[in-house]
Write a protein that binds this DNA or RNA. Structure first.
Length: 291
DNA sequence: CGTCCAGGTCTAC
DNA sequence: GGTAGACCTGGACGC
């Protein structure tokens, strides 16, 4: 196992990053081609680097993120991987203001020691496609569709070029994605054609939150839920992800009989630009083993 | 067997 | 701008 590089587990504002709490933050990060091994906590992720697939192991050791690979990589490949891992943890994001806001918070104070850094996919494209695969179906179907996509990609998530060139019949008959197939294929073709530069959405300087949301909503298969979901993975945390899992979970945790979306939003509005993250942490607290 | 629905979205009023 | 109905799939139910 070659150690490729390591990162200090610190965000842009000097805030701590809890590795264990990060990889538990969101289900999408655990979909193929990723997996999480417990004890010791290790995150495994297969990437395509050039024309081969490598499996990286991510572990925390001494407050640093250690990234290792079983196969040797060239300097350029290592730099490519470094950028992808940085994107997954969004090291450039500053959660310090959020932690300052929740420091004395009865509901979320527990999270201020590094939780909530929602792990993203290496590319926005992958997050968009996976998000479409979470809509209007059971989680088992999401796993099945994602597994098929990764198989198509030779063990790594397929790049837009491949998905654009894959016939509709594959989406229908092999991946069994139903009506989602044409959506995904259409997005892949538009990305390849340059109609949408999804990867630029990670750059705050290039897109306001409103602009990013607008681009996401323009994608077929991405509606209010999908846009809010991808926005979270972009580190844009104002929107609440409201769906058939978060709504009932909110009711259960609060003991309420019912709550309109607008009511839920209002309950978290005091967290401002981090309302969506606050909502997510509130819902997923029991996913995280208290240290 | 038929109906419902799961981490919604689109289209047509 | 708000609200029905349709939509692929497959597993969970009721009959």
């Amino acid at each position: 196992m070659q150690v490729l590089f390591d990162f200090p587990l610190v965000g842009a504002g000097g805030e701590p990053i809890s590795f264990a709490r990060t990889i538990h933050s969101h289900g999408c990060a655990r979909l193929p081609p990723a997996s999480v091994e417990q004890s010791p906590l290790r995150y495994l992720r297969r990437f395509r680097v050039g024309n081969r697939v490598v499996e990286l192991t991510l572990e925390e050791r001494g407050g640093r993120l250690i990234v290792r690979s079983p196969s040797r990589l060239g300097r350029n490949e290592v730099e490519r991987v470094r950028a992808l891992v940085a994107r997954m943890f969004r090291f450039h994001d500053d959660l310090a203001p959020f932690y300052a806001k929740i420091a004395g918070d009865k509901m979320l104070g527990w999270a201020s020691s590094g939780a909530g850094r929602i792990l993203a996919s290496p590319t926005v494209f992958e997050d968009v496609v996976k998000t479409i695969c979470t809509t209007n179906c059971a989680w088992s179907a999401t796993v099945r569709m994602t597994t098929a996509l990764v198989e198509l990609g030779g063990g790594a998530f397929p790049e837009p070029e491949l998905l654009a060139a894959t016939p509709e019949s594959w989406y229908r008959d092999a991946a069994r994605m139903g009506y989602r197939g044409p959506y995904v294929r259409s997005i892949a073709r538009d990305v390849v054609a340059g109609t949408y530069d999804l990867e630029s959405l990670t750059e705050p300087a290039r897109h306001s939150d409103e602009g990013a949301e607008e681009m996401l909503l323009a994608l077929p298969g991405i509606g209010p839920y999908g846009a809010a979901h991808v926005m979270q993975l972009l580190g844009r945390h104002r929107l609440l992800v409201l769906d058939s899992w978060t709504r009932p979970t909110y009711l259960r945790l609060t003991g309420k009989k019912r709550a309109a979306d607008s009511t839920i939003r209002r309950a978290f509005s005091r967290y401002g630009d981090f309302a969506g993250l606050a909502f997510w942490l509130f819902l997923t607290r029991d996913w995280i083993e208290e240290a």
